[in-house]
Design a protein around this nucleic acid. Structure first.
Lengths: 339, 339
DNA sequence: ACAGGCTGGATTATCGATAATCTGGCAACG
DNA sequence: CGTTGCCAGATTATCGATAATCCAGCCTGT
């Protein structure tokens, strides 16, 4: 095959029709008789013709591309969702374009800019911090978008996520029913809706089960990370008057468990732990850990559905889909020891 | 802001220059006096102008996009490489477009087709099977590409990968030096270069250390997967005359270790195991496992470098970069018990 | 036999930007 | 003083495809 790319014009010359006719044959326009269509398509195929979708998009206004803007691609949780999004979009005839901010959310606007510049038909946006400015940027440019996995307080937009409030409540009530009275809540580093919601659900559970505020200590994510980095996680746990730990995510819970092991504190004998994420669902050879599981793939499916609806009709009222979560009891909780 | 997108024309009208002048101002053409440039850029910015990069690409022939074609996005190994590729490409002024085949390599041609259709400037291709046809497809369309992570036998192309032969050799010789004489080699399901190379390196080690063929059993990947799925992994291990296991990847090794544990076979007391991948480097709370580590991020960096070189000069002779691997001894190997 | 409707396809305009070429004015220069 | 050179910016052609419109020939009905 030659170096220069083959265009409609080349195909048209080769088979004796005009560019327009060839274009319509390749798009399977029913106004062209079937034999003509097949003949043209065959010539095009045998010449190795590949449509220039840029030109096509430019003229038709529809690119068939959807941008997915995500913070961090290292994370297995996101990878699974991306994979599912890809499958769902492809099924609907779209391509997925991943834009990754590499944990630097200040790039969000650049990413949105880039997506619009490439004429995507819509954006699936994974918020990281609870920051409305990027959302407003998308609104201002009136591009269809859906927030995934999290939401932004004060912004009414299309959104698909798991019920983090319920997650927090499940974790708290599970421990409360076992009889725990003294809780250590290890939260996350960023002010995301998932963190805020989980904490809110937890607090609600504490209230419902009559646990007094004095029985609850909430450690900010920064302190947790710092303690882990300096291998001083033990200090967070002492004085050892806590009987239950709730940890914002598995990636923190496991190091904490290792630290507990080093201090010869038995799980769940001495202390119970409930976590969020349930990584073990994806990496089955991890240690067992009672954890709240949110089905990211369903979020992906629903998010794609919402976006396609939005693209089809921009005047729809904002839709929110909240999916239930569940607690996988894997034995890292038990009734507290009477002291 | 309004619904319709703002174009060069709008900006031109707003500031009293022609489209062309505005275009050149936005591209910072030095032939325009600086004050004019800044003035135009400010107007464009304040109007919320976003360049239509499709139109730009169509005319200029350069898209600034690179396609990365990968088999499976679930895999942490790939995610890390993708992330690194993204960083490197962005640094060089390119965008990354991920195309994922969802484990169905028959889609490879579609992906390449799609990439070319979108006028990408180059392709980073992760081969899965040892199948040259996709490579030929890219060659025929004369699009710059680099094979990453693996290579295709019989094809001389740009390629960045780790030294899997060395990896196999390291694994084999490590065990041989400890005195093992009877080996079980669990291979992978697909005929990829990494599998073939690792096996080759292993065989070379066996030869160098004088291990007879009768001391080596090689289990095809299908059988391993099947045994794992049916929880009959034990059957592979019996009769228990093997003292060393070499496993093609950690994701198989861990289930095998669990199975061994169930059978009360001690590691490394009764049997030694060496694996490939070193997942623990990314998930530190996994169980310890002596494993060959290949630095995927360096492969990513080198691959991007090769592709950029290729784009800059298509007449270069093919370049191959092979990166060294290393063995992380985490204590799952020991000298065999004398029987 | 002729208006009106199909049919199969050609013409022409356009998407939004960039490249190549052109122009009118002013400064330098032999 | 007329030519050369440069400068800032305008004109025009073009990238590859699709949308909107148009037209010639043929069939159909009355």
């Amino acid at each position: 095959m030659k170096g220069a790319r083959i265009t409609l014009k080349d195909v048209a010359e080769a088979c004796g029709y005009t560019i327009n006719t060839v274009s319509r044959a390749l798009r399977d326009d029913p106004r062209l008789p079937l034999p003509t269509r097949t003949k043209i398509r065959q010539t095009a195929f045998s010449m190795g013709y590949i449509r220039n979708s840029l030109a096509s998009t430019l003229r038709s206004g529809k690119s068939g591309n959807i941008a997915v803007i995500v913070n961090d691609i290292h994370n297995l949780h996101f990878c699974n969702m991306l994979s599912k999004i890809d499958i769902e979009l492809r099924r609907a005839g779209y391509n997925m374009m991943v834009l990754c901010m590499q944990l630097d959310e200040s790039l969000a606007e650049q990413m949105i800019h880039s997506a619009i510049s490439q004429s995507v038909d819509g954006i699936l946006f994974f918020p990281y911090h609870d920051n409305p400015s990027h959302i407003e940027y998308m609104e201002n440019h009136s591009i269809p978008f859906v927030l995934l996995d999290r939401w932004i307080r004060g912004k009414v937009t299309d959104n698909a996520r798991c019920d983090d409030v319920q997650g927090g409540y499940l974790a708290g009530s599970h421990l409360a029913r076992l009889g725990h009275r003294r809780y250590l809540f290890l939260s996350g580093v960023n002010q995301s809706s998932s963190q805020l919601d989980r904490l809110e659900g937890f607090r609600r559970a504490m209230y419902d089960y009559g646990i007094p505020d004095e029985g609850i200590r909430i450690v900010p994510g920064e302190n947790v990370e710092q303690a882990l980095a300096q291998r001083r996680i033990g200090e967070l746990l002492f004085p050892m008057n806590y009987t239950a730990i709730i940890s914002f995510r598995d990636e923190v819970s496991y190091p904490v468990m290792l630290a507990l092991e080093e201090h010869h504190i038995a799980i769940p004998g001495d202390i119970s732990i409930v976590s969020f994420d349930h990584l073990r669902g994806e990496i089955p050879y991890l240690p067992k850990l009672t954890s709240i599981y949110a089905d990211g793939e369903s979020v992906a499916v629903q998010g794609v559905r919402l976006l396609l609806n939005r693209i089809a009709d921009r005047t729809l009222p904002p839709q929110v889909t909240i999916l239930p979560v569940r607690l996988y009891d894997e034995g890292t909780t038990a009734a507290p020891v009477k002291t």
